[in-house]
Design a protein around this nucleic acid. Structure first.
Ligand SMILES: [Zn+2]
Ligand SMILES: [Zn+2]
Ligand SMILES: [Zn+2]
Ligand SMILES: [Zn+2]
Lengths: 147, 147
DNA sequence: AACTCCGATGTTATATCATTACACTAATTG
DNA sequence: CAATTAGTGTAATGATATAACATCGGAGTT
């Protein structure tokens, strides 16, 4: 199923950009950072992202409309359900999974005869560092997304 | 916190539109359905939605970029974490909550000292009816979203 | 009534996110 | 070689969401 051919130049550049960045980046923010490498159009980014999403090297955060490199020690091929905690202040992301949570979702699906294909879990809030440093709105370090 | 003043005309119209529809609707789909009532611009819809989202009468499904009326028997004011199961074939949505799941998220947050503000859970797949009727991709009844 | 405040409204323009369409290149394979 | 497949470059377009500004109307005061 997982195709795993080596990454192309565009795919590698997009992945490097995301890996080098602590925060999620929008597709257009990635584009801007890769103009020096010859990127000119959104599609070049979106197409690379499509592939990286398929292979699990990158995740899309629906609540931010942005993308992050997978930073989780787990193997994503195993299709484990992953949750993302996103700090609204510094924009950092934590990936974690919990087998009990997975079990409960499976139980619900079984009871309802629902065939699960994908599960999206995103938690927004304040990370430990930002709780101490600043306040729930006061930017400690704003952590600008985008350009 | 919850303001609960009576709904304005625009808010009521948007809510009625969503309630009358079995599927989630995009803001622009709502706009199209309300042109007969005098709606002309996206902002009229988005502003009404903002209020309805605040009061919990409507939910936004990030994975669909669409909105649904709250159909859950629960009281949303209680801030219970709700999960949405979305059929990719017929677009119908099921809302449910599970205290064990909530407990596990709380446990993670406590361990990480993360202050949770909102939790988004969306499960995509095939509902029981569509599993029997059709196939995992073959449209039994496509269930067109949007216009 | 006149004044003020505040939430809602109407309208135009703009920003942001994502895809369609088409022509082309490179590697693979029979 | 021809056929297939994935990837690429470019322009145009579509879909989703917000900014900015003027106005309106009710509630509470004076
Ligand atoms: Zn991951
Ligand atoms: Zn933080
Ligand atoms: Zn609800
Ligand atoms: Zn269905």
């Amino acid at each position: 199923m997982t195709d795993h051919r080596p990454l192309t130049r565009n795919q590698a550049l997009v992945l490097e950009t995301l890996t080098a960045c602590e925060e999620p980046l929008s597709a257009y923010a990635i584009l801007d950072r890769l103009r020096g490498e010859g990127f000119r159009a959104p599609l070049q980014v979106y197409r690379a992202l499509d592939k990286l999403l398929q292979t699990g090297l990158v995740h899309r955060l629906d609540s931010l409309k942005a993308f992050v490199a997978c930073a989780h020690p787990h193997e994503h091929g195993g299709e484990a359900t992953v949750a993302f905690a996103i700090c609204e202040n510094c924009a950092r992301v934590w990936e974690f999974s919990d087998s009990t949570i997975e079990d409960r979702f499976e139980a619900w699906a079984k009871a309802e005869n629902f065939l699960t294909r994908a599960t999206t879990i995103e938690i927004s809030g304040l990370c430990a560092a930002c709780r101490e440093a600043g306040a729930p709105g006061e930017p400690g370090q704003p952590g600008e997304r985008g350009a």
